[in-house]
Design a protein around this nucleic acid. Structure first.
Lengths: 213, 213
DNA sequence: AATTGACAAATTCAGCTAAATTGTCAAGGA
DNA sequence: TCCTTGACAATTTAGCTGAATTTGTCAATT
């Protein structure tokens, strides 16, 4: 998320995002935003591609050009929504760099709380019928799992560079899968779940990430 | 599963299951078996309660008396199918009482392999549409999670009596949720996943269950 | 205790037509 | 060059009606 301005030219030559990429990003964000708005009112199965395009002030073909199909858009949308939560998770991790166990607990708690309260997540999960988005987090959830795992792995490696990459990935994927499980089928309160998971993964974390910086 | 014949009377007075309970168990097993047969051919949404009853050689009302509703039966059926896998898991655990880490790995592997190959599980997971059984392992999966957690907790406590009950439960629930996640959204091969999970939970297991018997 | 037959309420099905949606064109405009 | 417009076939859905089925619950019977 945070663009790294790697330059030797100084402020004059700050890394500027090339226009084509910026335009593409803007387009995607606008389309996702439109979809988010529509989803406040109706279920995914009742929203057409034309609805999204027109709500975004864009033609239907532009939508199809950016995302090949309805399902591709839905997939990308779910991941884009995940960004919001992963940003919060990142922040929670960064605030606890001195205590890896606490970092994991805080990250999971912030995720479960924000996701559990999010109205969009709620409709997404209650949307059991055909045509909903639920499969993208369950039976067809691998893309989301892999994306979230990659992002979380990067966060962990950034926070604890001394951690073996493979262990970071292992921890990340387990956290992602447990997080999804606890969002789709909540048991205890987020705080309780996070604390318990922290206790469970604590020994591994101590070993893999170490207490030292 | 294994009935404990706790008696001071000797072989003559072996613990016999009282008739009413045996009859009830037989009835349930027969109904579940009928449902399993039917599910080989059609999807759950296409099977009626009358189909199951008649396939079991029983009246529809007997079915309704034993299970209050269609959904209750489906719920119970999913759990009953789970018994098959949990039996295998139990065996894997019992075969590795001397090495808790290996036990967890073996248990998860045997579960993922048998569940992944099971034709019934396959149709259950591919049954995305309305009226399927999938929600009972995902969005409405808490009963299954709780049941499986309770059974696995008992297995762990039986195998390692010195383990703190709360830690046994913690481990069990995490394993259940990870197992469900990996069955619904498989990543690597069962063996790989099991080994990785064993590595992840190894430190906690060492701490909680100890290496000593 | 299980079966049978019956029942209202709710759901599904069959059959059809009209309408809408998806995904992909080529042509035109900023 | 990128977006828009308008059009297109193929597929899905909407809407409709009545018939049929299914669910869940009775009371009476064996």
């Amino acid at each position: 998320m945070a663009p790294i301005a790697a330059t030797i030219e100084g402020v004059e030559a700050a890394a500027r995002t090339p226009y084509p990429q910026a335009a593409k990003a803007l387009l995607r964000e606008t389309l996702f935003g439109a979809a988010r708005d529509e989803l406040q009112r109706r279920a995914w199965s009742e929203i057409t591609m034309a609805d999204i395009a027109s709500a975004a002030g864009v033609s239907r073909q532009t939508l199809y050009k950016e995302f090949g199909s309805r399902d591709e858009f839905a997939q990308a949308f779910v991941i884009q929504e995940g960004e919001r939560f992963l940003d919060a998770v990142d922040a929670a991790v960064r605030a606890n760099l001195d205590d890896p166990r606490a970092a994991v607990g805080a990250a999971l708690e912030v995720f479960l709380r924000s996701a559990g309260e999010d109205p969009l997540v709620r409709v997404l999960l209650s949307d059991d019928g055909t045509g909903g988005m639920l499969p993208f987090v369950t039976t067809q959830g691998m893309p989301v799992v892999q994306w979230a795992t990659a992002r979380l792995t990067a966060t962990i490696e950034e926070g604890w560079p001394q951690a073996p990459p493979e262990k970071a990935r292992l921890l990340a994927e387990a956290l992602v899968r447990l997080a999804i499980s606890h969002v789709t089928a909540p048991g205890e309160a987020p705080k309780t779940t996070a604390a318990a998971t922290g206790e469970l993964l604590g020994p591994f974390i101590d070993e893999a990430l170490g207490q030292s910086g």
